[in-house]
């Protein structure tokens, strides 16, 4: 079944093939609160972009702007070559939003059937059920579903219209590891079918494992942008621990060193890339010992980045 789905032809390319969705100098204020400030970013066809940021960073606001559920205070929103409030544009978008309560007394298939009817060329009910992994429980009442199954139904409502662009707001929030991986698998399949996906997440791991491109946002501003590898190296760098007779100021002067701290008799050196620093270290002190290279913990590094969005030591990925 799944194999036949994968060989389906990719959907038509949008007319403006250089970008599917674009926020151009967009600001959004809610009264005094500045949810987004002068944000510029775009999503290109066939791409999976992750908008990464902690809670309250402005991710959901960006999603609402893309979906025409909010109007920018300043700037322009373009999506699929049009305006997000036009119904013909909405026809080509599938959205998964954070919702506190879904009507609980409808069956899974009834929910999907209704949403499918909104679109002009929806998938067959069975296809949607397979994609979202709901085939076995299609007759279940929504209120009886587990958290993961509920989330998969919302995912099914996003994909049932066979849209070109999927906008998924925190699709895996509250899911356990296994459910999260299942959903990732399904999202990857959509991209392999030629869909464009924009998702928001506050898990660096999720952005890393899924996205072609990651946009890091905090306090309503984009603070980094790049491939997951670039973001990770920019954000996290490496941590070298060692015993050396070099002094702290010498270590600080080595190229590529971000920060050095003395931890008892050992040094802890934060670097962008480990290898050049290690080479230099060994050249200057052949007696260096106890070398240990670790990557900074992903979540920890991400927190450091976002909590310190004006920090000078922060490498900015912005072009």
């Amino acid at each position: 079944m799944i194999a036949t789905l994968q060989v389906q032809e990719p959907t038509d390319k949008p007319p403006d093939s250089s970008e599917v969705a674009h926020l151009q100098g967009v600001s959004k204020h809610f009264g005094e609160v500045r949810a987004l400030h002068n944000v510029d970013f775009s999503v290109r066809p066939g791409e999976l972009v992750a908008l990464l940021g902690p809670n309250g960073a402005g991710k959901t606001t960006a999603v609402k702007l893309f979906l025409g559920l909010a109007r920018p205070t300043a700037g322009k929103v373009r999506i699929l070559g049009g305006n997000p409030v036009q119904s013909e544009v909405r026809m080509r978008i599938g959205a998964m939003m954070q919702v506190a309560k879904v009507p609980e007394t409808l069956r899974v298939r009834e929910h999907i059937d209704l949403f499918s009817s909104y679109y002009s060329k929806p998938l067959l009910l069975e296809e949607t059920l397979i994609i979202a992994g709901l085939l076995e429980i299609k007759d279940r009442i929504f209120g009886e579903l587990s958290g993961g199954q509920k989330q998969r139904l919302l995912f099914a409502l996003a994909v049932c219209g066979d849209p070109d662009l999927l906008i998924l707001d925190e699709p895996t929030v509250g899911l356990d590891v296994e459910a999260r991986r299942l959903l990732w698998e399904q999202i990857r399949k959509l991209v392999s079918r030629g869909k464009t996906v924009l998702l928001t997440t506050h898990y660096l791991e999720e952005a890393d494992s899924l996205a072609d491109r990651v946009v890091v946002i905090n306090h309503g501003e984009i603070i980094a942008e790049g491939t997951p590898a670039e973001i990770k190296s920019k954000i996290t760098g490496r941590r070298i621990r060692c015993l050396t007779r070099l002094d702290i100021s010498t270590l600080r002067s080595l190229p590529g060193v971000l920060d050095v701290q003395k931890d008892r008799d050992q040094f802890e050196i934060r670097v962008t890339e480990a290898e050049p620093v290690l080479r230099e270290l060994l050249r200057r002190d052949s007696a260096v010992s106890g070398i240990e290279v670790t990557s900074a913990g992903l979540e920890e590094a991400f927190l450091a980045l976002t909590q310190n969005n004006n920090g000078d030591s922060m490498p900015s990925g912005r072009n």
Binding site: S87, R90, Q98, A100, K101, P103, F115, Y118, G161
Partner: peptide, 17 residues
């Protein structure tokens, strides 16, 4: 309930008339 708890928003994001 649907307005206050986000369901109406999900529907408004879809092409529902």
């Amino acid at each position: 309930a649907e307005r206050g708890l986000g369901w109406l928003q999900v529907k408004r994001a879809s092409p529902m008339p």
